[in-house]
Amino acid sequence: MELTNLFRQIEFIKEVDKLKYILRKTKLFASDRNENDAEHSWHLSLMAIVLAEHANFPIDVLKVIKMLLIHDLVEIDAGDTFIYDTQKSHDNTVEERQAAKRIFGLLPDHQAAELIALWEEFEEQQTNEAKFARAMDRLEPLLQNTSNNGGTWREFGVGYGDVYAKKQVIQQGSLTIWQYAEQLLNDSVEKGILTK
């Protein structure tokens, strides 16, 4: 039994290495290199540790970190959907649910069930942990785009209204961080790197 579990866990570990090859539209801070999903997940997890004190409610930081480390694993199969894509919804898709079942299903049943439940909790955005995790997921690209003179906003012609609509979910996880983010958006308009 233990050896069987170990083999399954190793297969999962090998499979999720593929996350390093999934490129996002956003670029690294002050860089022209696209970020990959593994870098994104690591960065969000570290942000959660550092910024946890700003959560609206007490949170289980370890649970948030787990969510952030696994939330994009489904993109190994489903690919990354640009948050401002007008053709394909960024919301949870059938492809992502199938990917979650396949990828997490590589693990022993008890671990697969735990990670699928965490992934679904993140997607449903009902718990304090999920709301804070989503706030981190929306904050990082905002910081990247402001460091890159508009970054993907400018590259793909995304305006203030669309950015604001996607970013305001930050306030559900942290009003303090939302106030900071909203100021960044307004400053970006003033600097001309985000069109109103």
Rank of each mutant, 00 (worst) to 15 (best):
3 L>A: 13
3 L>Y: 10
4 T>S: 11
5 N>A: 09
6 L>Q: 10
6 L>E: 12
8 R>L: 06
8 R>I: 02
14 K>V: 13
14 K>C: 13
17 D>Q: 14
18 K>A: 15
19 L>M: 07
20 K>G: 07
21 Y>E: 14
21 Y>Q: 10
23 L>R: 06
23 L>N: 06
24 R>Q: 09
26 T>I: 09
31 S>F: 05
33 R>I: 08
34 N>W: 00
35 E>A: 14
39 E>G: 05
41 S>N: 13
42 W>Q: 13
46 L>P: 06
46 L>W: 15
47 M>R: 08
52 A>S: 15
54 H>N: 13
54 H>M: 10
65 I>F: 00
65 I>Q: 03
65 I>H: 02
66 K>P: 00
66 K>Y: 02
66 K>F: 02
67 M>R: 04
68 L>K: 02
69 L>D: 03
69 L>V: 06
71 H>E: 08
73 L>R: 05
74 V>A: 08
80 D>P: 02
87 Q>E: 11
88 K>G: 02
88 K>C: 03
91 D>V: 12
96 E>T: 03
98 Q>Y: 11
101 K>N: 15
101 K>V: 11
108 P>R: 09
108 P>V: 10
110 H>L: 07
113 A>E: 15
117 A>C: 12
119 W>I: 01
121 E>I: 03
124 E>C: 06
124 E>D: 09
125 Q>T: 05
126 Q>E: 13
126 Q>K: 14
127 T>Y: 03
128 N>H: 11
128 N>D: 08
129 E>R: 03
134 R>K: 10
135 A>Y: 01
137 D>N: 14
140 E>L: 15
140 E>W: 14
148 N>C: 10
151 G>Q: 08
158 V>F: 01
160 Y>R: 08
163 V>I: 12
163 V>F: 01
164 Y>K: 12
164 Y>P: 00
165 A>K: 09
167 K>P: 00
167 K>T: 02
169 V>G: 05
170 I>M: 00
175 L>F: 08
176 T>G: 03
178 W>C: 00
181 A>P: 01
182 E>A: 12
183 Q>I: 04
185 L>K: 01
186 N>I: 08
187 D>H: 07
189 V>M: 04
190 E>Y: 10
193 I>N: 02
195 T>W: 10
